[in-house]
């Protein structure tokens, strides 16, 4: 049996080690804020933090997590960058259907934690892996800059 730390809480996992972290979070732990979108790391809706780095959880076997700290959309508000991004997303009404936004917020929070004042190029580099079918990119860019200033 594997144990992983998610949002500062330790969970004993029944799933086999090759099971992607995404499905452990969603199906076993009930942390459904992390979404499924493509299964091949093309859309980014499954993005979580592993020791603060943005990672596509659909591609990470749970057996490779080890001692590293997992943070999901349910827990990222406890971090400064995460809380600022979540507030900016509401201040600017970034969200439409919202299905991709947990992944967008996780990528944006990881960006801000590493780069407090990202320019457009840095935003493109950090966010290009996160698709939004509703097309909220204008406000995602504004939201990151708004969060950086807050």
């Amino acid at each position: 049996m594997t144990a992983i730390s998610v949002n500062r809480k330790t969970y004993e996992i029944n799933a086999t080690e090759d099971t992607p972290l995404l499905w452990v979070l969603r199906d076993e732990l009930g942390l459904t804020g992390t979404k499924f979108g493509c299964g091949i790391a093309q859309c980014g809706v499954c993005t979580v933090h592993v020791d603060g780095m943005a990672v596509r959880s659909c591609q990470m076997p749970v057996g490779t997590v080890g001692e590293r700290a997992i943070t999901t959309i349910e827990g990222v508000g406890e971090t400064s960058a995460g809380a600022r991004v979540q507030k900016a997303w509401l201040d600017l009404e970034v969200v439409q259907c919202g299905y991709c936004q947990p992944g967008q917020i996780m990528s944006a929070a990881a960006l801000l934690a590493a780069n407090p004042d990202p320019d457009d190029e840095a935003i493109d580099a950090a966010m290009a892996g996160n698709l939004c079918r509703c097309g909220t990119y204008v406000r995602i860019r504004q939201g990151i800059k708004h969060a950086a200033r807050s």
Binding site: T32, T72, E74, W89, L90, V95, P102
Partner: peptide, 8 residues
């Protein structure tokens, strides 16, 4: 509808 959407 959006406050619940940004916190999962």
């Amino acid at each position: 509808d959006t406050p619940d959407k940004v916190v999962g």
